[in-house]
């Protein structure tokens, strides 16, 4: 658009960008740098800021040498290994059903989306009750088939699968809509051509749909790896990191160290470990996406 380059334009540009840029600097740029700085100090939030003591890389050394970080990463990996394949399959299935034209499609869309709208606090409360060992809905359902269900959230092995189950319920509607947008974008003429060649539903899906939406699948996997490192509310409400340390994860550690144990510096070190992990994942995504997936559509 042609705009005269005068003082009025300059002032408008400045004022219009001011709220965002100020917020960007004060609440994003400054914090990310000061989090790094903070991680080299011992700092108790309850004490005056003058009491901060510089301890160099000590927090990072503690992090790497204590078994806690390993437990945190193992738990996170355990979560992702279960969660990611299931969420991809389930949300793709939902999306491919919703991509058909049928009566009542909007109703189903809304139903599938209900858990996404629900807050994690409410969602976690529901699932805590469903996963209750004795009176929970799930174990009562399993008992119907003669299966004795575990006491999910208080069992070291089964706590994380319980959280995965709740997360699949919570998130699949969200990713289904993303896949749905991708499926709608696939050129219909490919299917028509394949049908003439006698391809069945599965062939069409595996040979046409899957390759064509592979960039979106890749994107959803990356999104979920990044989100997987940041799960918090589900864990915090459902298990609080327990039993023992079976479900401790990074953000839960950041919160507890900073606001329960008042070890701000140590928590900041944790948060920078998280930042580096996410940076690396994002970098890999940028670097390699062209090689891994098919982009001609």
């Amino acid at each position: 658009m042609y705009i005269k380059n005068n003082a009025q334009k300059k002032i408008t540009v400045f004022l219009f960008l001011l709220p965002s840029v100020a917020g960007l600097i004060v609440f994003n740029v400054v914090p990310i740098i000061s989090a790094l700085g903070l991680s080299f100090f011992r700092y108790d939030i309850l004490k005056p800021i003058e009491d901060m003591t510089y301890i160099g890389l000590s927090h990072y050394r503690t992090l790497l040498s204590s078994g806690e970080l390993r437990a945190v990463l193992t738990n996170t990996l355990y979560y992702m290994v279960m969660y990611i394949p299931i969420i991809i399959v389930v949300s793709l299935l939902l999306a491919s059903m919703l991509s058909r034209k049928f009566k009542g499609v909007t109703v189903y869309k809304v139903l599938f989306y209900l858990p996404v709208l629900t807050s994690w606090v409410a969602g976690a409360l529901i699932w805590k009750w469903i996963l209750n060992g004795e009176y929970g809905l799930l174990n009562q359902f399993l008992a119907f088939f003669g299966i004795q269900g575990p006491s999910w959230l208080t069992n070291r092995v089964w706590a994380m699968p319980g959280i995965v189950l709740a997360s699949i319920w919570k998130d699949s509607g969200h990713f289904a809509l993303i896949f749905l947008a991708a499926l709608i974008g696939v050129n219909k003429s490919y299917y028509e051509a394949a049908e003439i060649d006698g391809a069945g539903t599965w062939k069409k899906f595996s040979r046409i749909t899957l390759p064509l939406i592979s960039p979106i699948i890749f994107l959803v996997i990356i999104i979920n790896i990044i989100a997987g490192f940041q799960i918090f509310e589900s864990i915090f409400i459902m298990t609080g990191g327990g039993p023992g340390n079976a479900t401790i994860v990074i953000v839960e550690r950041i919160y507890k160290n900073a606001f329960k144990f008042y070890r701000m510096g140590y928590a900041a070190a944790y948060s920078w470990v998280l930042f580096i992990i996410i940076f690396v994942v994002t970098y890999i995504q940028f670097k390699f996406k062209k090689r891994w997936v098919n982009y001609d559509s």
Binding site: L17, L24, P31, I32, A35, Q230, M264, S271
Partner: peptide, 26 residues
């Protein structure tokens, strides 16, 4: 350049800026 910086910040997890933001608010 400014727009790219805006986009890049989407990568920063809220849990990283949370502690300094708390201190700033304090």
């Amino acid at each position: 350049v400014l727009f790219s910086i805006f986009l890049a910040t989407m990568m920063i997890p809220g849990s990283v800026t949370m502690i300094p933001n708390y201190i700033i608010l304090k």
